[in-house]
Design a binder for these strands. Structure first.
Lengths: 338, 338
DNA sequence: GACTGGCACTCCACCACCGAGAGTGCCAAC
DNA sequence: GTTGGCACTCTCGGTGGTGGAGTGCCAGTC
């Protein structure tokens, strides 16, 4: 049904429309792509492509623009992988070098991704499932208020307030020692397993406080840090569309909703490879006029979190996909090396 | 030069233009504000106001709109303080209740401010100059890599990587004890003072590691946490202006630049009271078509940081100022109570 | 059967034009 | 100082005409 030439024409229409932002006609096509056939032939092919739903006309006497289905075919079968330029590779390295902690890594990544793709970038905080507890500390702020601090093997530091209830310093010290002895080296799931028994085993005088602290530990350990996302490159929305209230506002609103972004990334990515959701394929209705290019990142098969890019359906998919893939891989390696 | 009626007219023009978003003419003015004079009289007064630079006409046969200078006079002398509604007060309380740590407080504040003012909100992280060191911890991640953790009296937790250089565990424990003994209770400035002497006093075998850790402590203590700002309510920019590329884009870009925002807040606010910068008064050129309403927040005379709102010059100043003031006061109290 | 040149057709984008309406400035009168 | 009246200016919305780009279709050719 779709012979080679029709596919070539579809590819040409997508490429041209993405770069020119104007409906593309048969004449321009033969001129710019040396098709070796006449415009009339191209028109016939375009009629078929339109019939099949790959392209459409904004109005009767205009050129054609790709539909979501057209972009989909382009991404699946027609897009040639466009390798990153040397400058871009270097940009990635210099951008990430010198990151000091997880926050910093995430912030830099989002900036980087936004800059390379010139679109809106979204990066989810990594969850390191293999992380184990390295150290536990209870700091006294006042007789009543204390602070539980948890350090894991990746160097991530978490904190949670604890009600000390005027417990004497010796009790706190005792508890600190016992908990450290019991918890260090455990993974989150192991902590959950052992928690109850741990409290029961405590001496009577330490147990009330111990219960409070352990519940705080559980809170921290089970709270998924990857429920946080960071957004960057919002100014790039300006290039997004001519019409404002209908297309830009919903996107801006979505970008402020962490929950929406998480669902978006989760449903789009989730694997180690780059995934694309085009227009209506998108799980979130207000973003149905946008495309999402996302990928999980991590090391080997261990996926920690997702990152991606939101842009107009009319985007340069090959470049964007290449950029997302490259950044995801680099960040994965970078985090693995610590 | 400006008698009462002229001031009344200016006030009416500002109020009307802010709510209607259309140039306001002499006839509409007398009708809506019972001025007890004829439109012709109002026109004479408006001519004077225009002469003096308080109002202007977009084109010859249009009504008048306020100039920056007009808004300035309005804010300084004409705006009646508009108290918050009960609903708004309640919103503030319920919104902030249940905040668990500093990050959470800042995030909630920015959301709150954006929601009440329906504009773009900016909140700077507080610096608590009176904070003292409460606890110091050195956690071993691997023989080489360690993590310094610092807890201050406000419950803020900071971390910094440290190169352990294969130091034995006893050395680390020794150093931990010494540093805790020496540093707990000190304010940042005191730490800076004592740092050098502290390293010198250490036993020879501990000193190399000690020097590394102390320099990490200094790094943390002198790094100003208030160099971080959080932005919210960006979708409200949609209501900002009809023209896009010229007014919205620069604002979006400014909002991604932490440095710019810090300078902005710093130059605008810095005192405990609400300050307003209107249009060209603004220190940052790309924001010259916007107004900034900002205030320091803290307890009594102890100002910790700033927060504020960015919006079109055509904004409801009395309400916005009231909201910023109320939120600033509430956050100050909230943080003080811990 | 696939391709092509030609042709009539459609529709948008652009421009000029026009009238209505809003608002002004000015002036003479009160 | 205030007012009614009036001529004037400018925007806004609608109308109509034109050029051009692009199409669909058809008959003819390889």
């Amino acid at each position: 049904m779709l012979d080679d030439r029709k596919l070539t024409i579809l590819r040409a229409i997508v490429t041209d429309y993405v770069s020119m932002r104007e409906p593309v006609g048969s004449r321009a096509l033969v001129e710019r792509y040396q098709l070796d056939v006449s415009p009339a032939t191209v028109r016939n092919d375009m009629a078929v492509l339109e019939e099949e739903g790959y392209i459409m006309q904004p109005h009767t006497s205009a050129g054609r623009i790709p539909t979501d289905k057209g972009y989909r075919l382009f991404v699946d079968r027609l897009g040639t992988v466009k390798p990153l330029s040397g400058a871009e590779r270097r940009a990635i390295e210099t951008f990430m070098a010198g990151a000091v902690d997880i926050d910093d890594v995430v912030r830099r990544t989002v900036r980087l991704l936004a800059q390379i793709t010139r679109q809106v970038a979204i990066v989810q905080y990594p969850i390191l499932s293999s992380a184990t507890i390295r150290h536990l500390e209870i700091v006294t702020l006042s007789p009543e208020r204390g602070l539980l601090i948890l350090v894991n093997s990746t160097g991530k530091v978490d904190q949670h307030p604890v009600d000390l209830g005027n417990a004497p310093e010796e009790t706190v010290a005792d508890l600190r020692g016992r908990l450290n002895a019991a918890l260090i080296g455990l993974s989150p799931s192991q902590v959950v397993e052992r928690a109850e028994a741990l409290v029961v085993e405590l001496p009577d005088d330490v147990r009330p406080l111990g219960a409070a602290v352990v519940s705080a530990v559980l809170e921290l350990v089970t709270t998924d840090p990857s429920t946080r996302v960071v957004v960057g490159g919002v100014p790039n929305l300006t290039r997004f569309s001519d019409q404002y209230e209908t297309t830009v506002r919903p996107v801006l609103e979505a970008l402020e909703e962490q929950v929406v972004l998480l669902r978006l990334l989760g449903e789009v990515a989730g694997t180690g490879d780059v995934t694309v959701r085009i227009g209506h394929e998108n799980p979130y209705a207000p973003l149905r006029s946008t495309s999402v290019v996302a990928s999980g990142y991590g090391i080997d098969d261990d996926i920690w979190a997702n990152l991606g890019v939101v842009g107009p359906t009319r985007m340069d998919y090959p470049s964007t996909m290449a950029a997302v893939r490259a950044v995801a891989r680099y960040v994965g390696r970078f985090l693995a090396e610590g």
